[in-house]
């Protein structure tokens, strides 16, 4: 048996499966505007991720929440990834549909910084997913072969700083836009959906968007979502669209990794979520 792998106790020893390293699709660099984060320093974050066997992390920038000079934001992000996590961090630049000249920002991210994707944060960035230029953004990222990450619930709105008064971001217009631009590669981050589950259902039924696990809550939630929990009536999210995301350094890395052990998942399911699905969406460098 390979180091780190463990046979089911009391079970017949089966073929050894090497424990996979993790691709974390949801980390963010630089300062959270409202608190100094424990692992907010990039070098500390990289070391922390490595301790939990994260071998690759897709990194956005908290500066993108409020900054207007996104060229500066993206340049610093690219440099930080290169200098402090070259073999681990892959930068996802920011565009803001409410700011002018965003298509040029996409071009610079792609051609200048060689970024594999773009991240938008509607709500904090002053637009919602009904923005008339969202379909154009989808077209642009599709033409360039980029991934678009759409961030939803960064923080519980009940504990927002009082100066923030953000409107809830609903996924419906994204679903409609994606229907009009099939083939665009999109991942939603920190997406919990509404209580009834109808928006998640629409996202899964009508689009091919991927999703990370960082916002999923409930005992055994990962297994329940992919239909692997005992008594499950089927998958709410197809396994092949589920990706590991920690929302570090805002959230503890441990919470997301432990979710994969809380659910009774098979080795194949864990491998798919930890890295297989993400690698299919974004090949190795």
């Amino acid at each position: 048996m390979l180091a780190g792998a463990r046979a089911a106790s009391g079970a017949e020893p089966g073929p050894a499966v090497e424990p996979p390293t993790i691709i974390d699709t949801n980390v963010t660099l630089f300062g959270w505007p409202f608190r100094r984060l424990k692992y907010g320093d990039t070098a500390a974050l990289v070391a922390k991720l490595r301790r939990h066997r994260v071998a690759e992390a897709w990194a956005g920038s908290f500066e993108a929440l409020f900054h207007k000079d996104l060229d500066g934001v993206n340049t610093r992000l690219a440099r930080e990834c290169r200098e402090k996590g070259a073999d681990l961090l892959r930068p996802f630049g920011a565009v803001n549909l409410a700011w002018p000249d965003w298509e040029e920002e996409v071009r610079r991210c792609h051609e200048g910084h060689r970024m594999p994707g773009i991240r938008i944060i509607p709500g904090y960035q002053p637009f919602d997913l009904g923005h008339p230029e969202l379909p154009r953004l989808l077209e642009v990222v599709k033409q360039r072969g980029l991934i678009l990450q759409v961030v939803f619930g960064l923080e519980d709105p009940r504990v927002h700083h009082p100066v923030l008064n953000l409107q809830p971001v609903v996924v419906g217009p994204l679903v409609e836009a994606l229907k009009a631009v099939p083939g665009a590669r999109v991942q939603v981050l920190s997406f919990a959906g509404n209580a009834a589950g109808t928006d998640l259902q629409a996202l899964m039924k009508d689009t091919t968007a991927a999703i990370d696990i960082s916002r999923w809550e409930s005992n055994g939630i990962v297994g329940k979502m992919i239909g692997a929990a005992p008594g499950s009536r089927g998958a709410r999210v197809p396994l092949e669209r589920v990706m590991f995301g920690s929302h570090a350094p805002y959230a503890p890395v441990e919470t997301a990794v432990l979710k994969l052990f809380e659910s009774p998942l098979t080795a194949d399911q864990i491998v798919a979520i930890m890295r297989g699905n993400a690698r299919r969406l974004l090949p190795a460098v």
Binding site: G4, G10, A11, L258, P264, T266
Partner: peptide, 16 residues
Amino acid sequence: MNSRDFAFDPAYYGLP
């Protein structure tokens, strides 16, 4: 797999 089994060792991932 019984209810106490994990497919991989959590210790490998820096977990208990």
